[in-house]
Write a protein that binds this DNA or RNA. Sequence first.
DNA 1: CACGAAGTTATCATATATGATAACCGCTTA
DNA 2: TAAGCGGTTATCATATATGATAACTTCGTG
Lengths: 71, 71
Amino acid sequence: MKIDLLQIKIGNRIRELRESKGISQQNLAAICNFEKANLSRLEAGRTNPTISTLYKISEALEVTLSDLVNV
Amino acid sequence: MKIDLLQIKIGNRIRELRESKGISQQNLAAICNFEKANLSRLEAGRTNPTISTLYKISEALEVTLSDLVNV
DNA sequence: CACGAAGTTATCATATATGATAACCGCTTA
DNA sequence: TAAGCGGTTATCATATATGATAACTTCGTG
């Protein structure tokens, strides 16, 4: 798979999980201690996130890292 | 979990999977198109890898990304 | 209309992951 | 002994992720 596509899939997965919990980007970002603009960037697949960033999100969403990257 | 510990766990997971396939760091690095020194660094948990790096490794090891980060 | 909430995009500085090279260790073996 | 393999560590340059701020749009609602 192309890396760009991977990033987009990961972003979509985050959005999917976030929306399934009914929380806003603003909210999730706050829980993770980063800015909503940065989360927007992540969900859009415009960066190649590090595992620590994904881990923080997985904790906030109460899913495993495995589940978060299950794309 | 502390991020440092996460990195170490990921590194150990890579090593575990690599050794279970009986291939060397040198070999795996070559398949992934990076230097053995860089893989050594990753397995030692001395960096916070990006999802694209982990993805390349998962492909080379013929496991899913989910499986690779299942720590 | 005015306001706020939610999200997007651009931009910048800074931290750090990555790619690459070289030197080194321990071990095996020809 | 010498050479090669597997692995580690240090170092450097470069690319890029992250943190932060600001401006903007759209939508809903008082």
